[in-house]
Design a protein around this nucleic acid. Sequence first.
DNA 1: TCCTATCCTTAACCTTTGTTTGGAACCGGC
DNA 2: GCCGGTTCCAAACAAAGGTTAAGGATAGGA
Lengths: 244, 244
Amino acid sequence: MDRDSVVASLLRRLETVSKLDPADIAAIRSLPIAVRHWAGARAIVSDGERPSECCLIIEGFCIRSKSTEAGQRQILSIHIPGDIPDLQSLHLHRMDHDLSTLVPSTLGFISHASLRTLTHARPNVADALWRDTLIDAAIFREWIVNVGQRPAPARLVHIALELRRRLLSVRGGTEPATFEFPLTQEQIGEALGITPVHANRIIRQLREDGIVDVSRGQVHVLDETRLAELAQFDDRYLHQDPAA
Amino acid sequence: MDRDSVVASLLRRLETVSKLDPADIAAIRSLPIAVRHWAGARAIVSDGERPSECCLIIEGFCIRSKSTEAGQRQILSIHIPGDIPDLQSLHLHRMDHDLSTLVPSTLGFISHASLRTLTHARPNVADALWRDTLIDAAIFREWIVNVGQRPAPARLVHIALELRRRLLSVRGGTEPATFEFPLTQEQIGEALGITPVHANRIIRQLREDGIVDVSRGQVHVLDETRLAELAQFDDRYLHQDPAA
DNA sequence: TCCTATCCTTAACCTTTGTTTGGAACCGGC
DNA sequence: GCCGGTTCCAAACAAAGGTTAAGGATAGGA
């Protein structure tokens, strides 16, 4: 993967979310990024560690998760190319959760030192990155609502629609009827706060009802109208318009 | 309330969480803050609005919450003096949730303009405030785990212990057996993702079991050992040590 | 080709939580 | 001292989700 397309994914992301002037863009372009390939289902950084770099997803999917003492795991967020899922480690030095790949992925590592130099030199870039972490937090808030208030089927379709919406900033175009959703039923359960058995139940139900088919790492929307009605998905919390 | 003690609550908070040099502190001290009093259970900023200032809690308690179309409300966080619960509005211009008082409170309003000037002039202060919003996000992550994975009684004691721990940075001293917890049972339900009836059930159960007594806006710890065992509370996610 | 591991699927049964409802206690205002 | 609204308390029943257990599909490796 060449350098330009590596930075491109990051820039596309920051620009869908913030306004940057040419000098800012040039400064971001000159960030040193170490590209590495990762297998699927592997830890990138783990709870308790003190990383000295942040991880840009260039290709693939990652998740953040947190485990209780009782051994249960909660998935906190799903990440796509262009995301820097552990940007918070720049200021929160000790990890309080895990970051790992979902599928084989290409990752770009950027040292905290170079990011700190950049943000101190260019307040505009600092603001853009800060804003990025704030959107991250906005998504966490929506997930609290999701897990706390919605019944399990609505929970599932809500995170699916969120992912589809966010993928637009990478894949471009309009919202597709079929898109990648590389979670096993067990992982779906971990994201929704339900058991894998119950995840299976609701997936089957949604399929039988002709609303949506979640299988083999993909989502196929069967009935867009009833899906929207069930999910109550409003993308405002994603703050994707830099002007707004 | 005099100016010094107003800024003091903010400084105490930022300093328990970040390192600031004398020039930074002086700059923060010179921020214009408009002090206003608010009744209990009143909105401060609402979902959809575009505030032009941030709100520092000087005295009292506030909550952030989000409502679904179905009319259910989820409480997202509880805030105490020294917190700036809507600091995110500095970069996320449109509110995606509500902020309101829980009890009569004294609030200090700081304009976005003056905050932006300050953060651009002093990258150190920007980092401290950024870090503050990142801790906010870390708490959201823990709440996702709380609502997603823990049974209802553990959920309740977990947020109670979190509040007690955070109150230390305001009240000082060591963790008290009795502390303020100004939520009605209905609000407790909204924070835990359960109905008020079920909130009542588990509160009663915890009291009968001699673990903790939650009543009249207060928490009385009856058995510290069994409480810790039930809550599995580990304060690492609060990132209260600036050095760590 | 078989073997193995992972994932998906299903069923029966049990526990937790939601629903509905009603009453008691408390509190501020008159 | 009474009154209307909260808040708290409680019981009976219903629904959602968890547990356990087991068989079946799929895919990659030997």
